[in-house]
Amino acid sequence: MLLQDLKPLTRAPLIDPFGRKISYLRISVTDRCDFRCVYCMSEHMQFLPRQELLTLEELDRIASAFVARGTRKLRLTGGEPLVRRDIMQLFRTLSRHLETGALEELTLTTNGSLLSKYAQELADYGVKRINVSLDTLDPDKFREITRRGDLKVVLDGIAAARRVGMRVKINAVALKGVNDDEIEQLMLWSHGLGMDLTLIEVMPMGEIEAGRVDQYLPLSVVRSRLMDRYTLIDDPYRTGGPARYVRVKETGGLVGFITPLTHNFCESCNRVRLTCTGTLYMCLGQEDAADLRAAVRGSMDDTALFQAMDEAIARKPKGHDFIIDRRQSKPAVGRHMSVTGG
């Protein structure tokens, strides 16, 4: 009998060498996306052959192993997770951990292009909160950033998610000279609809056509600009991720800041990331990884899988090596963000 067929087991939690309990697993279910955002992908991406991807059953098996070892939050990412064929099957099977109480939250990060199609099903499978990546409210600029996206489709998807009762958080990458003049507008729009906003510094991952030094906008600058017009009050709210939040007194909403370059929060990192090929990255900003696919495909028993997980977490580093510098022409990490998952 496999682990995924059992009721939740009491097993030793996964704890890294620095005493951090691993309670959050992000799973990239595909490296494919229907957008080609300029800070994330090359315009002409070469995607993985489909035969290299874990099956949905294998993804479920690994996720269930993490749940058995104390993971309380699963986030499905991509690429764009909703473009994966039959992806609702995985949400359905993983939702059993919500029903037993072994899992606290099942969620996803999406570009919103397929939310209108899947919002009701996601809600039915226990997804109560989602992140939607949206960097601009200007239709022309949106198409330029995504190279092919339709802003109206995404806005309709957000509306569909809100109609079925899901809480939506907007994620926006701060891009110098692109959307830096829109951040206030994004905040007011998000808060006006009862949605929080998280701002993210561009990350040096993978070769792209644009220079990331030219894209990089420190969020310390953004925060300073917002403070010129609004009252920002530090807030203890946490979602399990790296964002640190302030509440905007004038709107009542939250703004989060993810600052891997100007100020990282590695000391409290409780996350690991699984790729669609079964590679486990213990840190987003480091290349060291573990092969869980071999453990899953090598045995029907989960002993080898648990052992591989233990060995991987024992190598989790204290922090990442992200840096953006004009003297450093190559990205800090060779793989694209779409490979690892957001």
Rank of each mutant, 00 (worst) to 15 (best):
N179Y: 13
A159S: 15
R20I: 05
K316R: 13
Y216M: 08
D5W: 10
L155G: 09
L274V: 07
T146C: 03
D180H: 12
R147E: 04
M187E: 08
M205C: 08
T77Q: 11
G149M: 11
Y24L: 10
A123C: 10
V38L: 14
G79F: 03
F66I: 05
D5V: 03
V248E: 01
R315M: 14
V248R: 00
Q89L: 14
F35M: 02
I323K: 14
S133Y: 04
E105G: 00
G206Q: 05
R26P: 09
K318L: 15
V202I: 11
L305P: 03
R167S: 14
R315F: 04
I170Q: 09
M203A: 02
D156W: 00
R50M: 10
T10E: 13
R244Y: 08
L14M: 03
D291A: 04
G252S: 02
E250N: 05
L254D: 01
D34C: 00
L114D: 12
E182H: 11
K176C: 00
L115N: 05
L232F: 02
L199T: 12
G126L: 07
I87N: 04
L193A: 12
G165V: 03
T251R: 11
D196H: 12
L3N: 04
R26I: 09
L219T: 03
L25F: 02
V38H: 07
L53R: 04
V153K: 15
D228S: 08
H336D: 00
R223L: 10
L6H: 11
Q185I: 12
V296W: 01
T275R: 06
N179Q: 15
L122C: 10
E58P: 06
F47P: 03
G342F: 12
V173R: 07
L2N: 13
R223N: 06
R85F: 09
G278Y: 05
T231H: 02
R129L: 14
A289T: 13
L115A: 05
M203R: 08
Q51N: 05
T198N: 13
C33G: 07
D288E: 15
V339E: 15
G334M: 06
I200L: 12
L280A: 11
T136M: 11
A314Q: 09
K169L: 09
L292W: 10
T107W: 12
M309K: 02
L25S: 07
F142A: 02
D214H: 06
L232E: 08
A312M: 10
D140K: 15
T262A: 05
I62R: 05
A119S: 09
R26M: 12
T262V: 06
H191P: 12
V67H: 07
V272F: 06
V248W: 06
D288V: 14
S64D: 08
F66K: 02
T10G: 03
G112Y: 06
G253W: 13
Y125P: 08
N171K: 15
L14G: 08
N270S: 15
R163Y: 10
S338F: 12
L155F: 01
S42D: 06
H191N: 03
N264Y: 00
D16I: 00
E144K: 14
G177V: 05
R32M: 00
Y230G: 07
L2F: 08
S190E: 11
V246I: 02
C276Q: 02
R225D: 15
G177L: 01
Q120R: 14
T251Y: 14
R335D: 09
R229I: 10
G206D: 05
A312K: 00
N270V: 02
A172P: 04
R129M: 12
P139Q: 10
V255A: 09
R244S: 11
T251Q: 13
